[in-house]
Amino acid sequence: MTEDAPAPHSAGRTRWSRFAVIVTVSLALAGGLVYATASAALPTSFALSGKNFKFSAKRVEGKGFAQFVGLGQGSRSPMAVTGMASALVSGLCFSALVPTPVGSVTIRAEAGGDRPVEARNLVLNLTEMRAEATATNLSLGIDAARIDGATGITGRAGDYAHQADRIVITDLKANASTTTAGTFRMTGLSIVVKPGRQECF
């Protein structure tokens, strides 16, 4: 804290003026980064997992769609593993309820209000899904191990799966336990952290 004369040789201190300059510059850079992703100039990667995780979208136009039943690690609960090689997502919202010592906190991100979000290699592990869907070139009842979609995900041999070249999903509301996307190109991204339960739906 203070610069005592008999200070041990190891004592140091924080130069607050320098800290102020550095933290201001880096916060400005971070702001620029956030702006760049919010205007879809930079893609970002996602990997979310949690039992309270919700995913909703007004409209999803997916290519290379595949879905099969998979088990979570330790085979706790079955999930619909849903993959899309590429997707255009409008009105995207995902929210996670995070338990903290001071009560639940909702983290919610929304994007794709004006222009759709571009996602590549999107993989959602859904525990529940409600939506309207139209699929093109749909093949039902294929072997989950023989999915030839471009996402590279496959299930266990003998499990049921279906896939489609193209799928249009509207009013998607899903409870997801995990999601990963190779990249998301966000448009109009907004992130809010709020105390309490303020999820997408």
Binding site: S45, A47, K51, N52, G72, Q73, P99, N125, T180, G182
Partner: peptide, 15 residues
């Protein structure tokens, strides 16, 4: 944050 639930990532992606 990604593993606040009990399930760990099923499909491990680049993210």
């Amino acid at each position: 944050l990604p593993i606040t639930g009990y399930e760990f990532l099923l499909v491990q992606g680049i993210g």
